[in-house]
């Protein structure tokens, strides 16, 4: 599962570039166990417009959501939560462009399993005052005044996200999350980088296709001049390894 490694490295490089250019990049350490904010209350998950303190990723403002995975442990710092741009308490009253990227590491993350998709769709369940919707066009969130008053911040949001993912997919060994609120312009390169992992749904389709031997993203008749050639080569190797596994036919029908 190395075919997203180059994307993960590009994200890392991009964050460094943003930090170097003066953007505020905050990081919460992996072993921080105590984060402020309400946790684990009953929630109807709806935040009405009138109660919305911060709106993130409204579709006509700008949004990006990605889930990337790798089997390489060195690429993922477990438990790390990073934020580029203002935190929730600094965005009150605003509707801003938003990006959330999850990076998962594990040897056998079931990317073609429906549980992966299911897990992705309700990540902030149980976090009162937070409503989110993930789709192929990105992620849209509303954060309530009440929860910000109680101290909700991206550290808490990120911690909840990572805990939810780990609890639903045991195969995850390491996980980190990146948030970006520094503006629509900063979002654009991330949207480009995460094109291959454009939402969990799209990623799953691609993976399924690759394991079946066809490429959903390739439109070129010839590889010459293709900018994705190194990623594609990695994908091909991954599929070849799959094909070298014992034939499923002997194991019977189905998956």
């Amino acid at each position: 599962m190395e075919y997203l490694d180059s994307c993960i490295r590009e994200i890392e490089a991009y964050i460094w570039a943003l930090a170097s250019s003066g953007r505020q990049v905050r990081e919460w350490k992996p072993n921080a166990r105590s984060v402020p904010g309400p946790m684990n209350h009953e929630s109807n998950q709806l935040v009405l417009a009138r109660d919305t303190a911060v709106e993130l990723g409204r579709s006509n403002v700008g949004s990006c959501f990605g889930v990337l995975w790798t089997s390489s442990s060195e690429l993922v710092e477990d438990g790390r939560i990073r934020l580029v741009g203002p935190d929730l308490g600094e965005l009150i009253g605003q509707s801003v462009a938003f990006c959330q990227v999850l990076i998962l590491q594990g040897q056998d993350i079931p990317v073609t399993d429906n549980s992966f998709l299911i897990a992705s769709s309700s990540m902030t369940d149980g976090l009162p005052g937070v409503m989110s919707r993930i789709s192929r066009s990105g992620i849209w969130c509303r954060i309530s005044y009440a929860s910000i008053d109680l101290g909700l911040c991206f550290a808490a949001l990120g911690r909840k996200e990572l805990d939810n993912w780990r609890s639903r997919i045991p195969a995850i060994e390491r996980a980190e999350v990146l948030f970006l609120t520094s503006g629509a312009d900063d979002l654009v390169p991330l949207q480009g980088i995460s094109a291959l992992a454009e939402g969990v749904i799209r990623s799953q389709q691609i993976e399924k296709g690759r394991q079946r031997g066809y490429d959903l993203t390739c439109s070129l008749a010839s590889c010459a001049g293709c900018e994705h050639i190194s990623a594609c080569a990695a994908i091909t190797k991954s599929v070849e390894r799959e094909n070298m596994k014992p034939a499923k036919r002997e194991e019977g029908t189905g998956r």
């Binding site: 399924k208 079946r212 031997g213 066809y214 034939a247 499923k248 036919r249 194991e251 019977g252 029908t253 189905g254 998956r255």
Partner: peptide, 11 residues
């Protein structure tokens, strides 16, 4: 086919 059978299927 791609969900329920073991041999490859290409659309």
């Amino acid at each position: 086919w791609s969900r329920y059978l073991p041999t490859f299927s290409h659309q």
